[in-house]
Amino acid sequence: MLYFQLVLMAGTVILSYHFEYTDTFPVHSQGFFCYDSTLSKPYPGPESASRVPPRLLYPLITVLPVLTILLGEVSTVLINPRWRSREKIISCGDCCFFNPLLRRIVRILGLFSFGLFCTVIFAGAVQTVTGNQAPHFLSLCRPNYTALGCKSHMQYISSPYACNGDPDLIHEARKAFPSKPAALGAYSAVYTTMYVTLVLKVKGSRLVKPSLCLALLSPSWLLCLLRVAEYRNHWRDVLAGTITGAAIAVFLVTCVLNNFGSSSAEEGDLIQKEQEGVIEAENPVPIPCEKLSVIKSTSNCDIIPQSHPKRILEVHPPMSPAPPPCLVPVTPDVLIPSNCISSQV
């Protein structure tokens, strides 16, 4: 299974590289309406001129979650001593040994990286199929409306040779739905927020975890607003990207990681506390013998809990009164007293 996971991870990396940096999958050439105001916004410049350039975006969506997860796991080991007494776990035959902390970190961060590449693949596939234009598409396309015969705003142009601008910029302007930066930002923020919510335990204040979660979600929201404000994406592109990234993060955390194993960790804590003697059995409440008339004859009635009257009745059922003696005719001249009941013949 380890080798299969490595092959699957390598496949996602290669596929995301082809979607991002090559022309292996051609983008659908979608038409446009003449004088469409929603596609005539001014060109904001390349991605490097944005207020959130790629050199800031990609470290933000990778370094911040990694640091948060590392700090959370190390603090969990330092606070919870049950992790120190666990044995080594064999991961691949007899050659690879991982302690529980390293195995858990590799599992969480490895799945986080897998989800990042899956988000790139899913967003790139939808962009390739739809070919929706960015708000500044017509500013880059520079169509000749006179040569195209545009006479009204309702006239649709479907010719692939209608644009006269830079082909590379036009190609990038056709990949707006869904917004890939918004999808990556939402995935990273939701994944990290779910980790903080499900794994970290903060005592003494109820506002620490909500404040930390809002701080992790705020960059993603700010990124979405900037994409719309700079005319790089429509609001629907940003919304679709946010839903895509959040859905992938929720699926991986709930269905693959099983909520980071928080339920099993709580059970392990409970077992550890029971072993250490922290959780003690409740002492039974003594009951005087006068209150239990049915067990007056027992000598250990003062150690029977008060919360089990039904069990007491089951253990010591009340004695039923003896039935009256009946006369059973054995012989015509002799009557023998008996405790059974019979009908006369």
Score class of each variant (00 low, 15 high):
L2M: 01
Y3Q: 02
Y3L: 11
Q5H: 10
Q5P: 00
V7H: 03
A10K: 02
G11V: 06
V13K: 03
V13Q: 11
I14N: 03
T22C: 06
H28V: 12
S29R: 06
F32A: 02
C34I: 09
L39N: 05
P42Q: 12
Y43P: 02
P44M: 01
S50M: 01
V52G: 04
V52S: 04
L56P: 01
L56M: 07
L56R: 07
L60F: 06
L60G: 07
I61T: 13
I69V: 11
L70I: 13
G72Y: 07
G72F: 08
E73M: 09
S75D: 15
T76S: 14
T76H: 07
L78A: 11
I79K: 08
N80Y: 10
N80H: 09
R82T: 11
R84V: 09
S85Y: 05
K88F: 07
S91D: 04
S91Y: 01
G93L: 13
D94V: 04
N99E: 13
P100N: 04
P100Q: 01
L101Y: 12
L102T: 12
R103C: 05
V106S: 15
L109I: 12
F114Y: 14
F114G: 06
F114W: 12
G115M: 06
L116G: 08
V120Y: 15
A125E: 11
N132D: 13
Q133E: 07
H136P: 01
L138N: 05
R142Y: 01
P143I: 13
Y145A: 03
T146E: 14
L148G: 13
G149N: 07
C150E: 13
S152D: 15
S152H: 10
A162K: 07
N164A: 03
G165I: 11
D168V: 02
L169A: 05
E172D: 03
E172G: 00
K175I: 03
A176N: 01
S179F: 04
K180H: 07
S188V: 10
S188L: 09
A189Y: 06
A189R: 05
T193I: 11
M194L: 15
V196K: 08
T197D: 03
K201R: 14
V202K: 10
G204M: 06
S205M: 05
S205Y: 12
L207Y: 14
S211E: 07
L212W: 15
L212F: 15
L214H: 02
L214M: 06
L216D: 02
L222Q: 04
C224H: 01
L226D: 12
L226R: 04
N233D: 08
H234R: 05
R236N: 08
D237F: 07
V238C: 02
L239H: 00
G241W: 04
I243P: 02
V250A: 14
T254E: 13
N259E: 13
N259W: 15
F260Q: 10
S263T: 11
E267A: 15
G268L: 11
Q275I: 14
V278L: 15
E280Y: 02
A281M: 06
N283V: 13
P286N: 08
C289Y: 02
K291L: 05
L292M: 09
I295M: 10
T298V: 09
N300Y: 15
C301N: 11
I304N: 07
R311E: 14
E314D: 14
V315C: 06
V315N: 09
H316F: 12
H316E: 00
P317A: 02
P321H: 00
P324N: 01
P324A: 03
C326H: 12
V328F: 10
T331F: 12
P332M: 00
S338I: 09
S342C: 13
S342E: 13
S342W: 07
